[in-house]
Design a protein around this nucleic acid. Sequence first.
DNA 1: GTGAAAGCGCTAACAA
DNA 2: TTGTTAGCGCTTTCAC
Lengths: 331, 331
Amino acid sequence: MSKTTLSDVARRAGVSTMTVSRVLNGRGGASPETSDRIRQAAEELAYRPNAVARALKSDRSGIIGVVVPDISNPFFPEIIRGAESVAMRHGYNLLLCNVIESADREIDVLRVLETQRVDGVILCSARLPEKPLLQALKQYKAAVVINRSVPSAAAGCINIDYRQGAYEATRHLWDSGRRRIGIVAGPETSHGAAQRLEGVRSFFASVGGRELGIAHCTPDVAGGQTASLQLLEAHPDLDGLVCYNDLNAIGALKSCGRAGRAVPGAVSIIGFDGIPLGELVTPPLSTIYVDKYSIGQLGMRMLLDRLGGKFTQQSILIRPELLARESSRSV
Amino acid sequence: MSKTTLSDVARRAGVSTMTVSRVLNGRGGASPETSDRIRQAAEELAYRPNAVARALKSDRSGIIGVVVPDISNPFFPEIIRGAESVAMRHGYNLLLCNVIESADREIDVLRVLETQRVDGVILCSARLPEKPLLQALKQYKAAVVINRSVPSAAAGCINIDYRQGAYEATRHLWDSGRRRIGIVAGPETSHGAAQRLEGVRSFFASVGGRELGIAHCTPDVAGGQTASLQLLEAHPDLDGLVCYNDLNAIGALKSCGRAGRAVPGAVSIIGFDGIPLGELVTPPLSTIYVDKYSIGQLGMRMLLDRLGGKFTQQSILIRPELLARESSRSV
DNA sequence: GTGAAAGCGCTAACAA
DNA sequence: TTGTTAGCGCTTTCAC
């Protein structure tokens, strides 16, 4: 239990606290020998500056709040790592909050972060309605939201071009000869899901085709399994599945396996996100790859810029990329 | 940017800051009507207590530092979620730190947490040598280490019975008829790795056998792939692999695939940890299952107990369980 | 039932 | 080059 304070160090070095503060913060203002004496005293006493006191004085806590829906979803740890790598370089730390996919908890958590006087907030996939969200964002010195659009005065935004991604995904299946394509569409309430559907439909419009069927589901493996099974039963001639995310696609892979429909022999499957897991299933999953680590980095950079009063980038749209693997090979 | 302070509320309610403090903290000491006036004023001004000031005064930050080697390893998010669920119920928040598998960074991070005056620390899979680790732990009001043993005065410990688990894993392969078993052994510096090796050897001793070879590696898919490839090349007759963790095992799965050795036909593979991913690969991975969420909960409970001066449980040993799936089926 | 004063550890501003 | 003063927002005495 270190309780050494600045004045302990000052006493030991025979100077005032102010001098110690200046020296230890590298703001010069002391003779070399005094400085040495101070540094040595600090070392001997294992002095650690009290960030709490400093935060109170300076109104800067050095802490960034990061809110994610569910840290067990492999999509988010990558974002967190990217954000942390940038934060660390700038002397910031992350206060992490899981909101377990619940809007109520999201409010609670944002209130706690306010209380903790975090310097800024990165909010991933907020489920909050527009009004309370904007209200909450106003309370922070700076904020960045990921997977959601808000006015740039309220927060910086990083969005993924889901529409474009889903367009590419559908075209990819079409180009590999599939014509009877079903959609595993993710949560009905998800904003990203709606954008993906737009992309799908926009592609079909361009070739004068149409999807075979759509099934909504939870954004996990189980959901994908159920939804794809539904589609397979309703449309025995189905030969392609465009999925909301990779977890859904992996569920679809399982369903096809159980239903005796070979992938990619009989059914071609493509996911979305590009989680590491996709490479490890059999067959390896084709996907629309999103660079999550970069998103985390960009988000944190944007946040720190905003904290520093720089508003160069207000909104970034991430262009995902087709990553064709085995599950969508032409046959 | 809320900057409402206690005295803003006091002024508006026409009382002293002290009364406001008492009322808002539910410590009574004010007439019902005064209380109402105060609560209303606080509401109108959207007052949020300043946890920084409170922490300075009370020497309790309400923040628990959590240090993990790598949040992208699916082993840790589960622990974090478990820990957070308990912390949340008790009004604590988590300051999360990734140390990206580096001992140097571990020291830095622990120093930062000290500076931030966290109330306690949960340290997962510490790689630090004994001396500096104990030195660092001393600085906190309370600490819990997971996957490492230290004297109970220094920290509470939660350990997984790696020895027993590895014993079971080896026996499982042996019982399914494998006699030429290689070990994908994880990081050479890891304590858990050493314990697993003990378990493996203890089993072999009991049947008068011996492992075919041992290859150390990083605790991820790539590491498992490399190590297993090494073993496969050095020992073409190898028919079983006991792996440090599931990620390693999945890497081994890939190597076997590439080398044309069927799993479980030619080679039987078993992992460790029981991450969700293991169920989704082909063939589904046998593993020694560890209940990570519980570990997180137990760890946080132990920490909060220690913070409260209760030292009922000093050390917990988690017994993992064999989860036999397809990758180790007898043939 | 209510308030005044002091101080947690640090640093900005102003002396000396 | 060094020290003094004051105050960040809150809560713990202790007094009224």
